[in-house]
């Protein structure tokens, strides 16, 4: 069973000619089949965690370890991490001029699976996955994220999640900027992947709204660069009622 283990992770970022520590010792274990929600106020470092795990060059790891099934993730390049089974659904997916969605998906699937998918079954696979996400077939011929609405971008991210079948999926504020209908469609997509039992999900969000559609096994409160409280789904209800104030006042209380 695939396991992502994050131990005492410290991460800095260069900003305004100064080095700033964003993650200050994160400990978390995500196992295949589990869903962990990471919730926290803006600026707490949630997205830094997501991007650091995926290997974004902007972030410098200054301490700690991350392993996927015992393999050192931090030693891997961005593409190696993806091929090892990590997937990051981005909050702000990037436009890629000149590359069609269909070309992109196929190139990506080829890289992840280690061989080009058979064309006939692939076309069917993509078509069905798109239908499930209420995506127009014409979408496949558009350039990646170019001119996509917020909802289209997120559906496209989840489409990739469904097709690439990672071991661990990190969803970085996938719910942000979505109306209720889009949120439902996207959540159903995530749930289909979760129901296979083959993916560990790290759901990063500011709001509890998405947790009505995607039920987490564990909820972690993230504040000031680390996890300050962990619990079950009931912790989300508490956050819904009380907000993050208790965790932000006076900075890191722990």
């Amino acid at each position: 069973m695939a396991t992502l283990e994050i131990r005492d992770l410290h991460v800095t970022v260069e900003a305004d000619n100064a080095t700033k520590e964003i993650l200050k010792g994160v400990d978390l274990t995500v196992k295949q089949g589990e869903t962990h929600a990471i919730m926290g106020p803006n600026g707490s470092g949630k997205s830094t965690l997501a991007y650091s795990l995926a290997g974004h060059p902007k972030y410098t790891i200054t301490g700690g370890t991350v392993t996927l099934d015992g393999e050192d993730v931090l030693e891997m390049s961005v593409d190696e991490r993806a091929r090892a089974g990590l997937f990051l659904a981005m909050q702000y997916p990037v436009e890629v001029p000149g590359v069609s969605v269909s070309n992109f998906l196929r190139t990506s699937a080829t890289a992840i699976r280690g061989e080009a998918p058979k064309l006939r079954t692939w076309v069917k696979e993509v078509k069905e996955a798109m239908e499930r996400l209420n995506m127009d077939p014409a979408f496949a011929e558009r350039n990646v994220n170019e001119g996509f609405s917020g909802g289209e971008k997120k559906r496209h991210e989840i489409l990739q999640l469904e097709l690439l079948k990672p071991k661990v999926a990190i969803l970085d504020e996938t719910d942000s900027g979505l109306d209720v209908d889009a949120l439902r469609v996207v959540s159903e997509g995530v749930n289909r992947v979760r129901e296979t039992g083959e993916v560990g999900t790290l759901l990063i969000t500011h709001y509890t709204r998405i947790l009505r559609y995607i039920k987490p096994d564990h909820v972690h409160v993230f504040a000031n660069g680390r996890i300050v409280e962990s619990g079950g789904a009931e912790l989300a209800d508490k956050l819904e009622a009380e907000g993050y104030e208790a965790y932000t006042k006076g900075g890191a209380s722990a």
């Binding site: 990037v94 992109f104 190139t107």
Partner: peptide
């Protein structure tokens, strides 16, 4: 863009 594509397993 490079990060996005590489994060989908595609070598640089």
């Amino acid at each position: 863009q490079l990060f996005y594509l590489m994060a989908r397993g595609i070598p640089e």
